[in-house]
Design a protein around this nucleic acid. Structure first.
Length: 614
RNA sequence: GCGCCAAUAGCUCAGUUGGAUAGAGCAACAGCCUUCUAAGCUGUAGGUCAGAGGUUCGAGACCUCUUUGGCGUACCA
């Protein structure tokens, strides 16, 4: 995928410029051991072959994680050195283990020859102690890094049409856009979130025309409908009418021309209906936690697009057909040709996108602009980027399409004509209602201060997690029955962990004084689950870095799930507040506090609201 | 036709970028609430990683072909 490769180029290794206080500890431990093993390997080869070159030629030493924690924390596969050393990898592992075991200058840890691997069980006491210092100092910023700190990244997402309400596909777009923005910010980038309102074009005229014919002056107030739903009703009406009257499409095309020519009546209707839709959309955004730093409107950028196309024609980048339409030849990139301006002079989707890109770079010069747009539009962006490049904009190379897959239903694609589109507002309301029922069923109403707000937060967590569990590039199936389940690998499961820890912390606060003078002793955290928790906490920053590099929020989702599941088991099996001794209580509470902090930080990256109680 | 993308348990998805016995959730079955929130925990069962070749010490991952599905190839957006 070219956009991840792009970011990789622009992403210095986060470990090159690790500043003080910004510590990625597990990485350091890994690097330290890697250097040690590598040196020993070369030393051994030098003794045996009189040179260590063969080792370097065979390939770099790789560090991995053993499949099971009993096997240690780090693994060095030695297969690739077998040939040059003329020794079985099992034997190399043993030799290295024995040689290294004799050294006194190594960090604490245990060496294991595990078949063809040399494994290391690292000393986690020191790590846990250091983690505690770092997590409590950094708090909400724990896990962030500065790998993109010099970068200004604009992220475009959502981009609704003003002729209908948002549906499930938009929700995926919004969730990805918002999450990717948060992840890039956590990697230190300066992020500018922009929306583009598709408020002009023949499809907009369709709902206007139908309203004009059948609307009878209906308004959101008079009908009690949310503005976007009202406008959407007439868009649907148009397609019905279109079937009966073949001239409908022509009439819509005619209206578009009127609109571009500034017909006052058409403009007034357009403004009115746009406003209704935008008010409705604003509500949906507010519910789903979506926000933007800037809005762009097609109606304001299409003229620039038209002008640019005309200039391109003069410069000879484009050409004109006899009927007056303007085209670009795409044979240099193995495509056919593309129309940029209709024969009647009205602009197209791509025309305005040219204008929008140019005005954006002028408004907020970026190092990178990421378009979060469905994969169906890969061709569109390929062409758009090529056009801008041909027009001579140097920043055209910094444009990237984060193409995400479609959201399908179990029985196939969503089709508006067949009424199988999942409406965003309805879905959200349904989820909220489900959450509320759940709260009542569990008899939690007395504990929860604001049941309404909590229900919404649970609905939002469920929705965002459902949408962000899947790698954005892949198509996904939205199963309504499954999406409203709050058990298992779901947003509420994750929220529940945060709520239970919070509850525990409230109880601990009452007795905190008794533990004031007990120091955190990480050596007491010797359980398997405790070691694993420490390691996971330590590796959070790497998950953020990886999610940023791949523009993939699912990496955070799956990190969150791993952490939650591990914690859940730990919490189920071992007492925390009622641990055997006060120092052990202190140690476990400290660990759990770190888990909570990481949960909160991770929630924020994938749009899961944190709940103190649920 | 051409181009792009995908195929992993009955279903929905992971799979550390080529390493050890392919993992979760849902659904099914069997257990666990006088104990820090049972939106939880444990166990059982479930796999020819679409198929065939190839590269490699080593392939679910890389290459080729085949099959199946999706998307695109609009003077729609």
């Amino acid at each position: 995928m070219f956009c991840s490769r792009y970011l990789e180029e622009h992403l210095k290794s986060p470990y090159d410029n690790t500043s003080e206080g910004e510590v990625i500890m597990m990485q350091q431990i890994r690097e330290t051991w890697k250097t040690i093993v590598e040196q020993e390997l070369i030393a051994y080869a030098t003794e045996k072959l009189e040179s260590g070159d063969a080792i370097r030629e065979a390939g770099p030493l790789i560090v991995q994680k053993p499949p099971k924690s009993e096997m240690g924390d780090l693994a060095f596969p030695l297969f690739i050195y077998a040939k040059v050393l003329r020794t079985a990898p099992q034997k190399i592992a043993e030799i290295l283990r024995d040689r290294l075991s004799g050294r006194q200058d190594l960090p604490a840890g245990e060496l294991l020859a595990a078949g063809p691997y040399l494994n290391v069980r690292v000393d986690l006491d020191a790590l846990a102690q250091q983690l505690y210092a770092v997590v409590s100092k950094q708090g909400d910023s724990y896990g962030t890094n500065s790998s993109l700190s010099q970068k200004r990244i604009m992220v475009e997402f959502s981009c609704p049409n003003t002729n209908k309400p948002l549906h499930l596909g938009h929700l995926r777009n919004d969730a990805i856009g918002e999450s990717v923005s948060a992840i890039l910010t956590a990697n230190g980038a300066q992020v500018h979130k922009v929306n583009l309102i598709n408020n002009r074009g023949v499809h907009i005229c369709k709902s206007m025309l139908a309203y004009q014919k059948f609307g009878n002056g209906e308004t959101p107030q008079s009908s009690g409908m949310k503005g976007d739903h009202l406008v959407g009703k007439y868009y649907v009406k148009f397609s019905q009418w279109e079937k009966e009257d073949p001239s409908a499409t022509e009439q819509a095309q005619e209206m578009l021309m009127q609109w571009e020519q500034g017909n006052p009546e058409v403009l007034a209707l357009w403004k009115q209906m746009n406003q209704w839709t935008l008010e409705g959309l604003a509500q949906t955004y507010a519910n789903t936690g979506i926000s933007f730093d800037a809005y762009y409107y097609e109606s304001e950028t299409y003229m620039l697009g038209k002008d640019t196309v005309m200039q391109g024609l003069e410069k000879g980048v484009f050409y004109q057909e006899e009927d007056g339409s303007i085209w670009i030849d795409l044979t240099p990139i193995n495509l056919d040709k593309k129309v940029l301006l209709r024969k009647d002079g009205t602009s197209l989707y791509i025309t305005q996108d040219i204008g929008t890109a140019i005005s954006r770079h002028a408004d907020w010069p970026f190092d990178s602009l990421i378009y979060v747009v469905a994969s169906e539009q890969m061709y569109h962006f390929k062409v758009l980027f090529y056009i801008l490049k041909q027009l001579g904009y140097s920043w055209a190379a910094d444009l990237h399409h984060l193409s995400y897959g479609m959201v399908n239903l179990p029985d196939g694609k969503m089709k508006s004509r067949e009424g199988t589109v999942v409406d965003a507002d309805n879905l959200f309301d349904e989820l909220t209602q489900m959450a509320m029922n759940e709260i009542k069923e569990k008899d939690r109403e007395d504990e929860i201060k604001d049941v309404g707000a909590t229900s919404k937060a649970i609905a939002l967590g469920a929705l965002n997690y459902y949408l962000l569990q899947v790698n954005p590039t892949k198509d996904m199936v939205f199963n309504p029955a499954e999406s409203i389940s709050f058990n298992g690998n779901t947003g509420p499961y994750l929220q529940y962990m945060g709520a239970r820890i919070s509850s525990m912390m409230r109880k601990f606060a009452a007795v905190q004084d008794e533990y004031e003078n007990i120091l955190f002793d990480s050596s007491l955290l010797a359980l398997h689950e405790e070691r694993e928790l420490v390691k996971l906490i330590a590796v959070f920053g790497e998950a953020i870095e990886e999610a940023g590099r791949n523009l993939n929020p699912a990496i955070i989702s799956s990190y969150l799930y791993d952490l939650s599941r591990l914690f859940s088991k730990y919490y189920h099996d071992y007492p925390i507040l009622r641990a055997e001794t006060p120092p052990l209580v202190k140690a476990r509470v400290t660990l759990v506090t770190m888990v909570l902090q990481v949960l909160r930080n991770a929630y924020a990256l994938v749009g899961i609201p944190f709940l103190e109680t649920m």
